[in-house]
């Protein structure tokens, strides 16, 4: 399965719905999407990972890169994820401390701190 990406806006947040596999082959597409959003002035991003079947360290690197970009504009990057196999990768790399991880898009959109 390839990577699917779509974006929508809820208030001042931009939701990025990601589906499929984020790996060394597909991660550049996600990177381009995040860079494009930031260049277009979207600094508050919510990346919905509920449709993601696979995530590796290349994908983590892209998310960290996205976080770095939005922070340069005092923005935010929140993740939505309930899948244990994906959450595990954030845990073993210590990135659960770096990304706010929410259980739903609604919760991520409502979050302010």
């Amino acid at each position: 399965m390839d990577l699917s990406l779509s974006t929508r806006t809820v208030g001042d947040r931009t939701i990025v719905d990601v589906g499929g596999e984020i790996d060394v082959y597909t991660a550049p597409k996600l990177r381009e999407q995040l860079v494009e959003l930031v260049n277009d002035g979207s600094y508050h991003l919510v990346v919905d990972m509920e449709g993601v079947d696979f995530l590796d360290s290349t994908g983590l690197g892209v998310l960290v890169g996205g976080l770095k970009r939005v922070r340069a504009h005092e923005g935010s990057l929140r993740l939505v994820c309930n899948q244990e196999r994906i959450l595990k990768i954030f845990r073993i790399t210590g990135l659960t401390k770096v990304f706010p991880i929410h259980t739903s898009v609604e919760e991520a959109v409502a979050a302010t701190d």
């Binding site: 590796d56 360290s57 290349t58 983590l60 690197g61 990768i89 073993i92 790399t93």
Partner: peptide, 14 residues
């Protein structure tokens, strides 16, 4: 190089 190190970190965690 950084990505390679991150990959190794994930492998050793797993």
């Amino acid at each position: 190089g950084e990505e390679s190190e991150m990959g190794l970190a994930v492998i050793s965690g797993l």
